[in-house]
C-alpha cells in the first residue's frame, strides 16, 4: 500500500512538474550537431543568448538518426515544450505529419516552409545578401574574375551562387564568375582540404575573390585564400576574424536572431511565413576591425546603395529556388 502510494505520489509530482515547464522552449539540431561552426551553431548561439538575457532555460537535443526526428518532435510536444524550434530543412516531412497532432503547440521551422496552422516557417533571403557581397567582390577584384565555392549541390546553395553572380555582373558587366560545388553528399559540408583544392583551381583560372558557402569546407577556402594572398568571403556567421586582412566580408544569415525571436515570443509565436531579408536584418554583410582596410569608401557607398535599392524593390534579385534557373550564370 505504501509502495502504491509512493508510486502514485511520484506520478502526481511528475504531472505537476510537467505543467510547470509548460512555457519552456525547445530546439532540435540537425544531424550536423550543434557545434558545426556554421548553421546549427548559429542557432545554438541564438538559444544561448536568449537563456543568458532572460535567465530562462530551454531543452535541446542533437539527432543521431533520421528516425529520431519524429520521436524528438513528439517527445517534446508530449511533455509540453512550447515553442519547438527546428534547425534545418530536413525536418519538413516529419513536421508535416506531427504538427496536426499537436494543435496547441507552436513549431518554428528554419530554412523551409511547412504550411500548417501552428507552424511558423522562417526562410532567409540568402540571394539578397549574396548580391551585396557580389557587389563588393566585383569592386575588390583586380583581375575581373571572381568565384564561388558551394558545399553540397542543392538548390539552397545555388540560391547563394545566383544572387552573388547577379551582384557581380550588375556591378561589372564583363566580369567572369566561376561556380564550383564541393560535392553531392553531406560530407561536402565538411571537406576543408577539397575546399582548398578548389580555391587553387579557381585561382589558376584568374579568380582573386572567392565566396565560400560551404559550412566547414569554407574554412579550408578561407585558409587557402589567405595563404595565396587573394580575398575570400565568409558565410552564415561573421567569419572576418578567421583570416584577418584576407576575408573581404561575410554574408551573414542571422539564424541566431530567428531562434532568439522564437524563444522570446514563447507560446505567442505567430504562425505563418516569415522572410528574413535585408529589410529586417535577417541577412547582410559585415564590416568590423578585421576587414575595415579592405572596404573603400567607394565600395561602401555602392553596397549601401544596392542594399537600399533591393529593399525599395528597385533591384530585383533573382531567387534560384523560384524556378531552379539562374539568368546570371
Amino acid at each position: 500500500m505504501t509502495m502504491m502510494r509512493k508510486i502514485l505520489g511520484a506520478t502526481a509530482a511528475l504531472a505537476i512538474s510537467a505543467t510547470a515547464v509548460l512555457a519552456e522552449p525547445a530546439i532540435i539540431f540537425d544531424l550536423g550537431g550543434k557545434f558545426d561552426k556554421s548553421f546549427n551553431e548559429a542557432a545554438f548561439s541564438g538559444a544561448e543568448r536568449w537563456a543568458e538575457e532572460t535567465g530562462g532555460s530551454y531543452k535541446d537535443v542533437e539527432l543521431q538518426s533520421d528516425a529520431q526526428r519524429e520521436a524528438a518532435l513528439r517527445g517534446f510536444a508530449d511533455r509540453g515544450y512550447n515553442p519547438i524550434v527546428m534547425a534545418g530543412f530536413s525536418f519538413a516531412t516529419a513536421l508535416n505529419t506531427v504538427a496536426a497532432d499537436y494543435p496547441d503547440t507552436k513549431f518554428v521551422l528554419i530554412d523551409m516552409v511547412v504550411d500548417q496552422p501552428n507552424v511558423k516557417s522562417v526562410v532567409f533571403a540568402e540571394h539578397e545578401g549574396s548580391y551585396l557581397v557580389g557587389v563588393l567582390a566585383a569592386m575588390a577584384s583586380k583581375s575581373g574574375t571572381v568565384s564561388f565555392i558551394g558545399g553540397m549541390d542543392i538548390p539552397l546553395i545555388s540560391k547563394f551562387a545566383c544572387g552573388y553572380a547577379q551582384g557581380v555582373k550588375d556591378t561589372k558587366g564583363d566580369a567572369t564568375v566561376i561556380v564550383n560545388m564541393t560535392g553531392t553528399t553531406p560530407s561536402a559540408w565538411n571537406d576543408p582540404v577539397k575546399g582548398g583544392e578548389l580555391t587553387r583551381a579557381q585561382m589558376s583560372q584568374g579568380s582573386d575573390v572567392v565566396f565560400a558557402a560551404a559550412g566547414g569546407t569554407g574554412l579550408g577556402v578561407l585558409q587557402t585564400a589567405a595563404d595565396q594572398g587573394i580575398l575570400s568571403i565568409g558565410v552564415d556567421s561573421n567569419q572576418n576574424y578567421l583570416q584577418p586582412g584576407s576575408v573581404l566580408t561575410s554574408m551573414v544569415k542571422r539564424v541566431d536572431n530567428a531562434v532568439y525571436e522564437a524563444f522570446s515570443a514563447g507560446e505567442n509565436v505567430m504562425p505563418g511565413f516569415s522572410a528574413m531579408g535585408l529589410d529586417n536584418d535577417g541577412v547582410g554583410y559585415t564590416v568590423d576591425e578585421f576587414n575595415k582596410s579592405l572596404i573603400t569608401d567607394e565600395m561602401m557607398a555602392a553596397v549601401e546603395d544596392a542594399k537600399a535599392k533591393i529593399i525599395s524593390g528597385e533591384i530585383m534579385v533573382h531567387d534560384y529556388m523560384s524556378d531552379e534557373s539562374c539568368p546570371s550564370f
Binding site: 530543412f89 530536413s90 538548390p155 553531392t184 553528399t185
Partner: peptide, 22 residues
C-alpha cells in the same frame, strides 16, 4: 554504394525543387 545511391538520388530520383536528397 554510398556514392552511387547519392548520385542516383540527386540526378534521377529527387523531386525537383526539394532540398533534401530524398
Amino acid at each position: 554504394a554510398s556514392a552511387l545511391v547519392g548520385y542516383l538520388l540527386l540526378n534521377f530520383l529527387k523531386v525537383p525543387g526539394n532540398m533534401s536528397t530524398e
